[in-house]
Nucleic acid binder design. Structure first.
Lengths: 226, 226
DNA sequence: TTACGTCGGGACGGGACCGTATCGTCGTAA
DNA sequence: TTACGACGATACGGTCCCGTCCCGACGTAA
């Protein structure tokens, strides 16, 4: 059936929306025996669980996250979770994989610096959400221990940030802005490293005016020197 | 008494040595009622605990790490741990603070690119140890949740990588290689970001020949464009 | 109309740690 | 020589979570 696949693509963006908008509202959840379901997995329950996973992941991290905690936060029974996913790992893998599907549009301003500038704007806005900047380093650290998570993260990265950056590089090479012989991996590190370092490692709350522009200019110059 | 302070500076490097050399040896630890102590904290026990914390931190991460697990791995009683540190947090904070003390020598090759090259060589060697590349992202993720850990990490960073990089920048500015008006924070991001991204986030097992040199050249050019 | 299967709730035994306390052992500093 | 206190070991009650099971309530699809 297409229902479970549709969840991947349709439900997850809703999760993201909810996670960023309702993160602070405690939500009364007075539901005293809510309307029960039928012989079909209810989609609102599925979505509530997904949203709860995001919140729980941000609040306590993957290691401390428990199925009971997720169910509690989602206002559902443990059974509802186990009926959908076999374990915490499956649950998180499913969500991370779904995130990877969000294709980002490749900027095309006609210049390397301009493209980078646009990429940085999109990326820094995404990293500005506290939930994202809590979850990403957490899963990234967990990936060092769990090959499955590592693979899912790699895939998400390749289809997101890295994919866009590669396309920017290819366009620049085609325009002759870059040598065609550049080490692509090194170039990707130069592009993605600094903003990640600043936003996630240093955890700078706000970037000063002109930061992204200067970063794009310096990075473009660095790339041209390769 | 100076004993506890000396631990900070003397014992910890030993911990580092042990953690990188003995990480794979399972260690029999057959001690069946080892020689008991006296009315003074035994330093070998303290050191065994510190080493065990490193190993445990790398193996399961901060969140999953338990006092019982540490004591078990160190081959000591829980009491020995609680006698020294009040909690897991105090224990880890103490160790991280001790790490911060290791002052790195500032390279001075006479050129910005040469200094960067040297810095990258030292840094990448440090990040090559699996224990380091396991522990750092883990604590970094935990820092997002715990202000005390965040502060300790910041301090360690400032006294390590960031401190050296700042001195490199100052020297370059003095030589006239850089504009004196550069945004120091942005410059530090450009310097530290790419290698961290590559080593810790991407987790590339080995850097190709010539990588560090090309990275240093590109970064230096990028900095000069600021 | 009816059988099916999900719903939240709750209970189950089991496991891992928590932080504390109390042993007898034993080496050192007074 | 002696008193002190760290040592490993063990046990304690308590908390949290695991994964499974059963329950009565409920709504939908056959």
């Amino acid at each position: 059936m297409a229902a479970s696949e549709r969840n991947r693509f349709v439900v997850t963006p809703l999760c993201l929306a909810r996670m960023t908008t309702n993160a602070d509202e405690p939500q009364p959840r007075p539901r005293r025996r809510a309307p029960a379901g039928a012989a079909v997995l209810r989609e609102d329950v599925t979505e509530a669980i997904r949203a709860a996973v995001f919140e729980e992941l941000a609040a306590v991290g993957y290691a401390r996250m428990s199925i009971e905690g997720i169910a509690r936060r989602a206002g559902v029974g443990k059974t509802a979770v186990y009926r959908r996913w076999r374990s915490k790992l499956h649950l998180v893998l499913d969500i991370v994989s779904a995130l990877a599907v969000q294709g980002l549009p490749a900027p095309d301003t006609g210049s390397l610096e301009g493209d980078l500038r646009l990429l940085y704007e999109v990326t820094s806005r995404a990293l500005r959400h506290p939930v994202a900047s809590q979850i990403i380093p957490d899963l990234q650290a967990e990936a060092a221990r769990n090959p499955d998570i590592a693979e899912a993260m790699q895939k998400a990265l390749r289809e997101g940030q890295d994919g866009v950056a590669s396309r920017i590089l290819a366009a620049a090479a085609e325009r002759g802005e870059l040598s065609a012989a550049v080490d692509t991996d090194l170039a990707l590190d130069l592009i993605s490293g600094p903003l990640y370092w600043r936003s996630v490692v240093i955890r700078s709350p706000k970037l000063p005016k002109g930061y992204l522009g200067a970063l794009a200019r310096a990075t473009a110059e660095g790339l041209k020197a390769l």
